[in-house]
Design a protein around this nucleic acid. Structure first.
Length: 442
DNA sequence: TGAAATGTTGGGGCG
DNA sequence: ACGCCCCAACATTTC
């Protein structure tokens, strides 16, 4: 009897999952496999993302059950799994672009070729395949705007070909799982609820029904996105869709589709930033660990452990910075505007290399995504493609005046700022700014 | 998807 | 009416 294997990596969904949909059309017996394995030593799944992953796995298993399928979770390297396993006549999966996963995918493909097992690879995680986009000189784009325009021009083709095939509707009532349900999942590679109260509290900020979330956002808030997205105090100023996208619980095709219906162009533009981040990671894989460009290599970084800890704990004495860091710790998420502010502060005021911030975000964000995280930090540092120049230094007070004028966001996360029991700034911004510029000049 | 420093302009007060 | 100064408002340059 012929058997097909759907190898799940970062797409925990039934809807718009090309590999899975293809398998469902084959009228074969289907195995759905997820290999839980740290493929990149530098970037092992972070603590908050682990919590999210468990939720995603549970809900996905539930969804699969509705199609009479079982999610098999393997605690092993997929390369070893496919090396051993001999019962499939076809293996299908969706492309991933993290360097370690590209490597993994190549090795698996080699094994399958040697064994003469048919395999099919789909583009399911990104709107555009980064291998297919080049500028007129045949080089990868290094500036966002031309890349963005190029993508917009390609949407027509995309709608014609891929979309019709992909936009399938299944109903799911995904919910936040309790710790005991997570325990029952018994994922060995994942540390057990090391801190249940942190985990429960963090997940209390979230609802796992991503479909409802994106529908609601596109119907009510997406049109106001351009005007509201920079104000962290506004609850529906942004979609908060990032962790669902990271784990593929919602597809970029679905988001594009919903956003297009209401002409939410700025929202689509941000979705293209995600494409650009992935594209950049694919073409410049070293950038996940080092400066993409060497323009800052002579800067002598401070990387002071005590300062870093104050930053991590939200005790810098700068309310907008501390609010962001505390929102991150509590919810596993931080507003984008505030990510830029805390990033600028860590790099330019505290003189810490961006990788220090990237590691902390990696461990604490539920949406921790290697491409987006890398691009964000290199952008703030000024060492990446189309990055903000190093001398562009955010002034935390001016940023507050502009984007949290009533200090509602600060009141929410740093209530003691209002009552006076609040630490003094760990560094004087004016001094720090001049110091950073002097170092750059050197 | 900055901010500060520096330059320019033009109106009003005033001798 | 005129020149001079001040300075706000805006523009440009610089880091």
């Amino acid at each position: 009897m012929s058997k097909i294997c759907v190898w799940i990596r970062n797409e925990f969904r039934l809807n718009d999952n090309p590999a899975l949909i293809y398998a469902l059309h084959q009228k074969k017996s289907i195995d759905v496999i997820y290999c839980h394995h740290n493929s990149d030593h530098n970037w092992k799944l972070g603590s908050a993302a682990k919590v999210w992953l468990q939720q995603a796995l549970l809900n996905f298993a539930k969804d699969l059950k509705s199609q009479n399928l079982v999610l098999e979770i393997k605690e092993m390297n997929p390369i070893a799994f496919f090396q051993e396993k001999d019962c499939y006549d076809e293996i299908v999966f969706n492309k991933a672009f993290e360097p370690a996963l590209v490597d993994q995918e190549n090795k698996v493909s080699d094994i399958l070729k040697r064994k003469n097992i048919k395999s099919k690879i789909f583009n399911g995680n990104y709107l555009f395949d980064p291998e297919l986009i080049k500028n007129k000189q045949g080089q990868p784009f290094k500036v966002f705007t031309p890349f963005y325009k190029h993508c917009l021009a390609m949407f027509e083709d995309l709608i014609d070909s891929q979309f019709k095939l992909q936009l399938k509707e299944y109903d799911s009532g995904s919910q936040v799982a309790s710790c005991s349900q997570i325990d029952a999942l018994n994922l060995q590679g994942v540390d057990k609820p090391w801190n249940r109260s942190w985990q429960e509290k963090m997940m209390s900020y979230w609802n796992m029904d991503s479909k409802k979330l994106i529908r609601n956002f596109c119907e009510h808030d997406a049109r106001k996105y351009q005007e509201q997205r920079d104000f962290p105090a506004l609850e529906s100023g942004t979609s908060k869709i990032s962790p669902y996208l990271r784990f593929g619980q919602i597809s970029p095709f679905r988001i594009y589709h919903e956003a297009k219906k209401v002409n939410a162009n700025e929202f689509i533009r941000q979705l293209i930033w995600r494409e650009f981040a992935n594209y950049t990671m694919f073409h410049f894989p070293h950038s996940i660990n080092q400066d993409l460009y060497p323009n800052l290599k002579h800067i002598k970084w401070d990387n002071d452990a005590e300062m870093i800890e104050r930053w991590q704990r939200g005790l810098t004495g700068y309310p907008i910075v501390d609010a962001g860091m505390r929102e991150l710790w509590a919810t596993g998420w931080m507003h984008n505007r505030v990510r830029m502010i805390v990033g600028s502060f860590l790099i330019k005021d505290l003189l810490c290399h961006w990788t220090i911030g990237a590691k902390w975000f990696w461990d604490t964000l539920v949406d921790a995504d290697l491409a987006n995280n890398t691009m964000g930090w290199q952008w703030v540092a000024g060492s990446g493609v189309d990055a903000s120049p190093f001398f562009r230094i955010f002034n935390p007070y001016l940023q507050t005046e502009k984007f949290d004028p009533q200090m509602l966001y600060i009141k929410k996360w740093v209530p003691e700022y209002m009552t006076g029991d609040y630490p003094l700034p760990i560094v004087d911004h004016d001094f720090a700014r001049k110091r950073a510029l002097a170092i750059l000049k050197q």
